[in-house]
């Protein structure tokens, strides 16, 4: 595929469009360059905003109706036939309803299917728990061959989608409902799949986060600097798999306190991925995972739920202060290892 030279997305777009609308547009732009790109959904053209692509390319769009297993199976067939399907449905259905099709038809056969999973986490909190997806990162992270990305906002979604189209193979991009706040001002901050993006530098503690937590962690770090004089590093680990081990170990070594924040069950997602890296390194640090404490979420509008589960700036600040008081084993023996 030739280099994409379309528009660039800036905070102006992010302020006038939702995260999901931006991805709809980027998809149109990518389709100009890639004639084999084909869009797909299951009666969620409007809700996921892949409808923006459908409007522009009705001939290159397949709506299979409310049938997610078929959706993923058909995507696998299309990919085997040489097409480049981009499939969009809600995270809960992409990762769980069609979970085995995703695993066996797409990942096992290592097919070139991009999955844009919307309404991730509790971003559709008021819909009730059937529509929350707080396990999808755990599930998708365990699928071999699959790249798993959780963009921070619409601008990062644009970057992620472009980067995903540059590689051959399955990619799962997990978005919110679309109305999340914007962190990035422009696309030019060096997005690369598998590479964490530093948001702020610091030496006292590192917040490792993804998705909406990036915006809130950045805010928390600013406040903590002023109010507590703390130097907090924030790392946007947008790629959950393959995860940026170097950035994580550097943070462990240089700050010795790690707080992970994600819109997901604390089991199996970003926090667990980070813990795996730390455990394997043999290094100790003070460590806390913030997310849903292994429960099905309460019902409510997302802002209320973010506050309740300590995923917003206030909650993160509280958790950082707790973690600053935690003990850890001193370890002076770093130099030769990291």
């Amino acid at each position: 595929m030739p280099e994409v030279t379309g528009t660039t997305w800036t905070v102006y777009d992010a302020n006038t469009m939702t995260q999901t609308e931006i991805y709809g547009r980027v998809l149109c732009e990518l389709a100009e360059q890639e004639p084999l790109l084909i869009g797909m959904t299951g009666d969620l053209s409007k809700s996921t905003k892949i409808g923006i692509f459908e409007e522009k390319y009705p001939q290159r769009f397949i709506n299979v109706g409310i049938a997610e297993q078929n959706l993923m199976g058909v995507a696998a067939g299309l990919a085997k036939a040489g097409m480049r399907p981009v499939v969009s449905t809600m995270s809960i259905f992409a990762s769980m309803r069609a979970g085995e099709q995703l695993r066996t038809d797409i990942c096992y056969q290592n097919l070139d299917v991009k999955i844009i999973a919307t309404h991730g986490g509790v971003s559709f909190g008021h819909a009730g728990t059937t529509h929350h997806a707080t396990e999808d990162l755990s599930i998708t992270r365990a699928l071999a061959n699959l790249t798993v990305i959780v963009p921070a906002d619409g601008i990062e979604t644009a970057n992620a989608l472009r980067a995903a189209m540059k590689i051959r193979g399955p990619v799962y991009i997990r978005l919110g409902r679309g109305f999340e706040p914007t962190h990035y001002q422009s696309e030019d901050y060096g997005f690369e799949i598998g590479k964490a993006v530093p948001i702020s530098d610091g030496t006292d503690l590192t917040i490792i986060c993804c998705g909406i937590a990036v915006y809130h962690a950045a805010e928390a770090a600013r406040v903590l600097k002023e109010s507590d004089g703390l130097s907090v590093r924030v790392l946007n680990v947008h790629t959950i798999k393959p995860i940026d081990e170097d950035a994580i170990l550097r943070a462990v070594r240089e700050t010795r306190r790690i707080l992970t924040v994600e819109e997901h069950n604390v089991i199996g997602g970003l926090g667990t991925a980070v813990a795996d890296v730390i455990a394997a390194s043999g290094k100790g640090c003070a460590f806390t995972k913030v997310g849903l404490p292994d429960c099905f979420s309460e019902i409510g509008y997302p802002e209320d739920l973010y506050a309740y589960y300590k995923l917003d700036a206030n909650g993160i600040i509280e958790k950082v202060r707790e973690l600053m008081g935690k003990e850890f084993e001193p370890d002076e023996d770093w130099e030769d290892e990291v």
Partner: peptide, 13 residues
């Protein structure tokens, strides 16, 4: 209905 910690969300529990 739909409010924080309500028993009622769009899809009933």
């Amino acid at each position: 209905f739909n409010h924080f910690k309500s028993p009622f969300g769009m899809h009933l529990d």
